[in-house]
């Protein structure tokens, strides 16, 4: 039996979709059977971040309304034997799906897959309730900013209230230069405020923008963000991996000497 993981944050724009795409791709690289589900009905984006936007035929709402079989809606990610995206509808809204229907769907899917990963929409309304309905665990994404951390705290409360008992924190877009100057909260500061388990620290990395431009998640690449996301994947499957040393002088020096 696989696991259903919801990637959530409360606040928008902190990197839920990027995290979903990279963690999903990383787990597929680790030979896990993975399906990603875009839950942001009406504002879908996981398809473009994954570079699969031209291959959508059916979507999540079609599956729920039994207009197609679930396999027909899956988009297979090239280069992997067991990695799929279930896109959502763009012309419908969150009320097209109910939490009960989502739970039934994810309960079915986790019999087939090692990981069912849901990209949750921003907010705490129905889209959120749909996304967490069948979740076994959550990855809570935040950035080191007061608004994002406050929303993450709210999400923790809602996950507790809805019996999602296992959740881990991803601190995204950390800028070490600002942390060193004392002008940004460190990952430790964020942890001190939220006091939950930390599963990953992802540095602010322009390679993320580049990878989104081309629709190829950078997890597993030599970039700092690529390494950080791969480490998250190892921790998701229960391995203990030390956190990256983001203070390393190496990055600065290699930049200085123009190494790639």
């Amino acid at each position: 039996m696989g696991e259903v993981i919801v990637v959530t944050s409360g606040k928008g724009g902190v990197g839920k979709t990027t995290t979903t795409a990279n963690v999903g791709t990383g787990l597929a690289k680790l030979d896990k059977k993975v399906v990603l589900i875009d839950m942001d009905i009406g504002l879908r984006n996981l398809d473009v971040v994954m570079g699969l936007e031209n291959r959508i035929v059916y979507n999540l709402v079609d599956v729920i309304e039994q207009k197609c079989k679930i396999n027909q809606a899956f988009i297979k990610v090239k280069g992997y034997s067991n990695f799929y995206l279930l896109p959502c509808a763009q012309t419908r809204d969150k009320t097209s799906v109910s939490p009960e229907q989502m739970k039934t769907l994810t309960d079915t899917l986790k019999k087939e897959f090692d990981y069912v990963i849901l990209d949750c929409p921003a907010g705490i309304e129905q889209g959120f309730r749909n996304a967490i309905a069948g979740a076994d665990r959550a990855l809570i994404v935040t950035t080191p900013e007061v608004s994002a951390v406050r929303d993450a705290d709210r999400i923790i409360g809602l996950l507790d209230a809805n019996e999602v008992k296992r959740y881990d924190l991803v601190v995204n877009r950390l800028r070490m230069d600002m942390v060193k100057r004392g002008e940004m909260m460190s990952a430790e500061d964020v942890l001190e405020v939220l006091s939950i388990n930390l599963i990953g620290i992802v540095p602010d990395d322009e390679n993320i923008v580049v990878s989104t431009n081309t629709g190829t998640p950078l997890v597993g690449s030599e970039s700092l963000a690529g390494k950080a996301f791969m480490n998250i994947c190892h921790r998701v499957i229960g391995e203990e991996v030390p956190f990256l040393d983001l203070n390393k002088k190496g990055n600065f020096l290699s930049k200085l000497f123009g190494k790639k």
Partner: peptide, 10 residues
């Protein structure tokens, strides 16, 4: 430093 501000306000 504003980072400390952020933490204490939060």
């Amino acid at each position: 430093k504003s980072g400390l501000d952020a933490k204490s306000r939060l």
